[in-house]
Computed example of a mutant assay.
Amino acid sequence: MYAPADLELDLVARSLAAFEFARDKGGVLVGYSAAALLGADCAPLDAPAEVAVAVRTNARPGLRIVRARIEAGDVVARWACRVTTPLRTAWDLARRLDLVEAVVAVDALARKGRFAPSELLARRAKAPAARGCRRLDGVVELANPRAESPMETRLRLALRRAGLPMPRVQYQVCDEHDYVVARVDLAYPAAKLAVEYDGAVHYDPIVHERDRRRDNDLADLGWHVMHLCAQDALPSQMQHTVARIRAQLGMRTPRGG
Rank of each mutant, 00 (worst) to 15 (best):
S149D: 10
A18I: 00
V169R: 01
D217H: 09
V30W: 06
D204F: 09
D185G: 09
V180S: 03
L38G: 01
L218S: 04
A233D: 08
N58W: 08
F21I: 12
R60M: 05
R82P: 02
L121Y: 06
V201E: 15
Q231R: 14
Y197W: 15
K126Q: 14
G31E: 09
E141D: 15
R156I: 04
L228Q: 04
R64N: 06
L157C: 12
Q231E: 15
D217R: 14
H240E: 13
S15L: 01
H208Q: 15
L159K: 10
A200H: 11
H202A: 05
R82Y: 07
S33F: 00
C174Q: 14
G62M: 04
R82F: 07
T85M: 07
K126N: 13
W79D: 15
L63W: 05
V75S: 06
T57P: 01
E152L: 12
G250T: 06
G62S: 08
V139C: 11
L38C: 08
L221Y: 02
Q239Y: 00
P117N: 08
L249N: 09
A17M: 13
V100W: 00
V242M: 10
V51I: 15
N58G: 14
P150G: 09
P44E: 05
I245G: 07
A90V: 04
G132Q: 13
R146F: 05
R95G: 10
Q231S: 14
G113R: 03
L9Y: 01
A36K: 01
R124N: 12
D178C: 06
V12K: 10
Q231G: 06
R213I: 06
V169E: 07
A147Y: 02
V83L: 01
Y203N: 15
T84Y: 01
E209C: 04
L38E: 03
T89M: 04
V184S: 10
V103E: 11
S15C: 08
A94S: 15
R246G: 02
V83M: 07
A80N: 14
S15R: 00
L38D: 05
W223G: 01
M251P: 00
S236H: 08
A247S: 13
A54K: 11
P254V: 03
L159E: 06
E50C: 15
D92F: 00
T84M: 02
A22R: 07
V28Y: 02
Y2T: 00
D211C: 14
T84N: 03
M251L: 13
L11K: 00
E101C: 01
Y32W: 15
A182P: 03
F21H: 14
V76D: 06
L45G: 11
I206P: 00
D6C: 05
V139E: 13
L142Q: 13
M1W: 01
R244D: 00
C229K: 13
T85F: 03
A147N: 14
A47Y: 00
A17D: 13
D98K: 02
M226N: 08
R60F: 04
A230Y: 09
R244S: 06
L29V: 07
G250E: 08
G27M: 11
R160I: 15
Y188V: 05
L218E: 04
H240S: 10
L186K: 12
C81T: 07
Y2R: 00
D185L: 13
